[in-house]
């Protein structure tokens, strides 16, 4: 009886302090970040402890935990959330020559509170048998009535869409984009459901003709072990929007060191590790994302897709206009 009780109490209160370690709150899914962390541990001897979840949840949790938070690093898959975390005072300044040298300045915070580690683009995929490549231009054109009933996009609750709309608001203003968004919604082939992969599949089988997705989903499906995924992915083609304008919308996955991090040194070491050539190449080869380090060569699929012009809008604007974007999408009925 006593033994059981002790075991139970132990299980419940397990918070044994460790040697050198760093604690990570990650909005990146475990499978996408753990291998890097494991490699980090092998190379440096520092234990990396991981909790995965939604960025917003972590921001809330960091706010509440305050001084006593166990987290050293917050890792997100979108810039708007990094900006939000900074605005709430959850990050601290990190002075690191390595980080500043490798990462271009439009991919990191001006006050050195957060740093982009990889970036991705929100592109248009289309069915080549139903859409002439020449018909595609940019995001604004998607409001054209010629696309009526032919577009698939995921829900507005997804941060990638919110950031896309935020970037468009930054370029064109709320009023113009509200009109654009309401026409876009009218062009939907069906009410939003599923994730980006679902949209790609929908284009493949003919539910719609074009879709807005993040490029790495398409890459992932092309390399998938599931036959139905590769089959669907092969039936669509990728189009880089707005190449004659601002460029394709991009977003980063990035991280910052928390204000009350207990393991600040180890955290900075982890960040610097994530921008080493090895790690950056990993982002490109395994995750199908573009390395922030411009020197890294993209192989395989990314290489095949080639170079493209991307929007170098200051990413903190994605955070500034996030709320406007969400309210706007509600008003136009983008569910």
């Amino acid at each position: 009886m006593k033994k059981t009780l002790t075991i139970i109490i132990f299980l419940i209160f397990q918070q044994l302090p460790n040697a050198a370690e760093v604690n990570v709150y990650s909005a990146r899914k475990e499978t996408l970040i753990k291998p890097l962390l494991d490699q980090f541990t092998r190379d440096t001897g520092i234990e990396a402890n991981l909790v995965t979840g939604k960025a917003d949840t972590f921001i809330k949790r960091l706010e509440i935990e305050g001084k006593n938070t166990p987290a050293d690093i917050l890792l997100t898959v979108d810039a708007a959330r990094l900006v939000r975390a900074k605005e709430k005072g959850l990050f601290q300044e990190v002075i690191s020559d390595v980080l500043n040298k490798v990462i271009p300045n439009y991919f990191r915070d001006i006050d050195n509170h957060w740093f982009g580690l990889s970036f991705r683009s929100r592109v248009i995929v289309f069915a080549p048998d139903r859409v002439n490549k020449g018909e595609l231009i940019d995001y604004l054109d998607l409001a054209n009535s010629k696309w009526k009933g032919r577009i698939c996009v995921r829900s507005s609750s997804n941060i990638y869409n919110q950031s896309l709309v935020a970037s468009m608001i930054a370029h064109h203003g709320i009023n113009k984009i509200e009109i654009w968004a309401s026409r876009l919604v009218e062009n939907f082939a069906r009410p939003s459901k599923g994730g980006d992969r679902d949209q790609i599949k929908a284009v493949a089988i003919g539910v719609c003709d074009i879709a807005l997705v993040n490029n790495y989903y398409l890459a992932g499906m092309l390399e998938s072990s599931q036959e139905y995924e590769t089959y669907a992915a092969k039936k669509v083609k990728l189009f880089w929007p707005d190449q004659n304008g601002h460029g394709a919308h991009v977003n980063i996955s990035g991280a910052g060191v928390t204000k009350y991090a207990k393991n600040k040194e180890e955290a900075i070491q982890l960040l610097e590790y994530l921008v080493t050539d090895k790690a950056q190449q990993w982002y490109s080869d395994i995750n199908y994302e573009y390395a922030v380090n411009p020197e890294i060569k993209n192989t395989a699929i990314l290489g095949k897709w080639g170079v493209f012009k991307y929007d170098d809008l200051n990413l903190s604007l994605l955070g500034r206009y996030n709320r406007d974007a969400v309210l706007l999408m509600d008003r136009v009925g983008w569910k």
């Binding site: 397990q14 899914k29 991981l50 909790v51 979840g53 599923g194 994730g195 679902d198």
Partner: peptide
Amino acid sequence: TLILRPFNFNTLAVRTFELANEERLA
């Protein structure tokens, strides 16, 4: 569970949800 779980602690439900949401149903 997703929100409150301690470091390095996962449950089956969390794992299933994450995988399914990445559309890796198999």
